[in-house]
């Protein structure tokens, strides 16, 4: 591998929820600017990985390490991980009735700015940015006034997640099946959102079931996550292979796995 410093390094991570081990010896290295796709069967632990990295209550790390930008993620509070630049676009975004998107987003942006020792953004400036973000993800500006995800359709919720990403400008974006349930137009919006944010100092982990998103977002690496660990890694062509053959060939006995790998 190149000698650039990694943005995220996960080593031999074991994690469990409700006493059930889900992540079982996972390794992953993400360098600045890279896009990694993670694919894998339902129940493999893809969402769990995002929750463990972001520090969701109830998800406990048994052993291993995860380092973001030189900081030990696993020692940090949930909000401090976010402030350190970790963003998770949720597979199932939750509603917060009565709290407007705008208020929520400004508070989030301000909390992150404060952590960096910056002043709060002015309302006028923020509104301008928020409107531009709306436009980019193809949501009417009126969504800024609505309660967070309140009564949004599935697709609108996903686009709202993306809008948050645009405004928070994280270093590491984890998108958990942001493409699921989207029609082709919405899919393109998501892809464009990601592509527009790609830069030398921002990395992505894109969890997806479908090759089609990867037609638009060209990943640098594709990993297969199965039963709590990465069982195969490759370049973008691996996604095509998976599309054709499914995951079954990767889930057989260990001996065969080794043969294939």
């Amino acid at each position: 591998m190149s000698n650039t410093q990694s943005l995220l390094t996960i080593e031999e991570l074991y994690a469990s929820v409700e006493e059930k081990q889900i992540i079982k010896g996972l390794n992953l290295d993400v360098k600045p600017g890279e896009v990694h796709a993670i694919m894998g069967p339902n129940g493999a632990g893809k969402s769990t990985l995002g929750y463990v990295l972001s520090g969701r209550d109830g998800y406990s790390v048994e052993s291993g390490s995860a380092v973001l930008d030189g900081q030990d993620l696993l020692e940090m509070e949930t909000e401090d991980r976010a402030r350190a630049g970790l963003f998770l676009a949720f597979q199932y975004p939750v509603e917060i009735p009565g709290v407007s998107n705008l208020e929520f987003l400004k508070a989030s942006v301000d909390a992150q700015r404060e952590a960096r020792g910056e002043e709060a953004i002015t309302s006028a400036e923020f509104l301008k940015e928020a409107k531009a973000a709306c436009k980019q993800v193809n949501l009417p500006v009126s969504f800024l006034k609505r309660g967070v995800n309140e009564g949004f359709s599935g697709g609108e919720k996903k686009r709202n997640e993306l809008m948050q990403m645009l405004l928070l400008k994280p270093k590491l974006c984890i998108l958990d099946e942001t493409d699921s349930g989207l029609d082709i137009d919405a899919l393109q919006v998501v892809a464009e959102g990601v592509n527009s944010q790609r830069s030398a100092d921002r990395s992505f982990i894109v969890v997806t079931h479908y090759q089609r998103l990867l037609d638009y977002i060209k990943p640098d690496f594709v990993h297969v996550l199965s039963d709590g660990k990465i069982v195969k890694s490759g370049d973008a062509s691996l996604a095509l292979e998976l599309e054709a053959q499914g995951y079954a060939w990767l889930q057989k006995e260990p001996a065969e796995d080794e043969l294939e790998g």
Partner: peptide, 21 residues
């Protein structure tokens, strides 16, 4: 969790949720 994942501390999160309510 959503609020904290976006960088809000828990106090702010509760008061925002309650204010919204």
């Amino acid at each position: 969790y959503l609020c904290r994942q976006r960088g809000l501390d828990p106090e702010k999160a509760v008061s925002m949720i309650v204010n919204g309510f």
